[in-house]
């Protein structure tokens, strides 16, 4: 079963948040190290699964959710190390922990993708690409929310803390001031979009291919396809506006938030409401 293993990183993550409670600046670094430790636990579990079954399409709901949580955390850790913005871990980790808990509590149900028998590699690539793309957009979503709140603070000139102030907020203290700025947040948002968009595009194309091979027609009108295309279109417009017209800042952040909400909607739509349309039995 191995489901109990999911609890190890969850416990580490919860523990790390307890460290923040006394609001001692010295302990903030320890918080970051514990989050990384949690991610290492997740990775070890992931490789254990990989060792047991090899790289195959996850056929159990809990494995799927776990896989999703691992990819999301992997991408966030990469970004946090590359851009030196460890404070984003503060916001993403709860999402990951909730994902892991869902993975622990959902029954070990076997899901049967219909086309599993037909085109395994394309199905696996479709899943991986979409998950990477969605994780990037999830990161863009969180970063956009931070941007919107931070921008509002600066515009309204209220509750602005500068260094030397007694009660600097935790994310600012985590990053000792630098790095917690609008330009970088906007840049991360842009990078997520630039990298995530090709993943999502190829993922959707593969999805359409799989769907057409399943239903024997090319692009029959199905809710999942319509929502996916709307989402794709929103991100396409956003990318175009950014590249061509230099759209930045709050508008771009709001776009990202809307885009990700649509993704959440389409995922829940396709998995829970109309699983058949997504090729699930």
């Amino acid at each position: 079963m191995l489901k109990e293993l999911y609890l190890i990183p969850v416990v580490v993550y919860i523990l790390s948040y307890f460290i923040l409670l006394p609001r001692e600046k010295k302990l903030y670094k320890l918080f970051i190290y514990l989050i990384y430790a949690g991610f290492i636990c997740q990775s070890i579990i992931f490789f254990i699964f990989l060792g047991i079954k090899g790289l195959t399409v996850p056929v159990h709901i809990d494995r799927f959710v776990f896989f999703n949580a691992w990819i999301l955390m992997f991408i966030v850790v990469l970004f946090s190390l590359f851009y030196k913005v460890e404070y984003i871990l503060l916001y993403i980790t709860p999402l990951v922990a909730v994902n892991l808990l869902i993975g622990f509590f959902v029954p070990h149900v076997h899901i049967k993708p219909v086309m599993l028998s037909t085109d395994k590699t394309i199905l696996l690539t479709h899943i991986i690409l979409i998950l990477i793309g969605d994780s990037l957009f999830a990161l863009a979503f969180i970063v956009s929310l931070i941007y919107i709140f931070q921008e509002r603070k600066i515009k309204s000139k209220k509750n602005l803390k500068i260094l030397g102030a007694k009660d600097v907020s935790i994310p600012e203290a985590l990053h000792s001031g630098s790095g917690y700025n609008l330009e970088l947040l906007d840049n991360i948002n842009y990078q997520c979009l630039k990298i995530g968009f090709p993943f999502i595009t190829i993922g959707i194309v593969m999805g359409i291919y799989l769907s057409s091979s399943l239903f024997k027609t090319f692009m029959i009108v199905k809710p999942i396809e319509i929502i996916s295309l709307i989402t794709w279109l929103i991100y396409a417009v956003l990318l175009h506006e950014r590249v061509a017209k230099g759209l930045r800042g709050k508008k771009a952040a709001v776009f990202s938030v809307i885009g990700f909400l649509l993704i959440l909607f389409s995922l829940s739509f396709s998995f829970y409401l109309f699983p058949v349309f997504h090729g699930l039995e």
Partner: peptide, 19 residues
């Protein structure tokens, strides 16, 4: 003694906007 002044605040604020 501490360097807090309008100028210091201006630099701190710009660090909140620019990377």
């Amino acid at each position: 003694a501490s360097p807090v002044s309008v100028s210091y605040a201006a630099v701190e604020l710009s660090k909140k906007i620019f990377n």
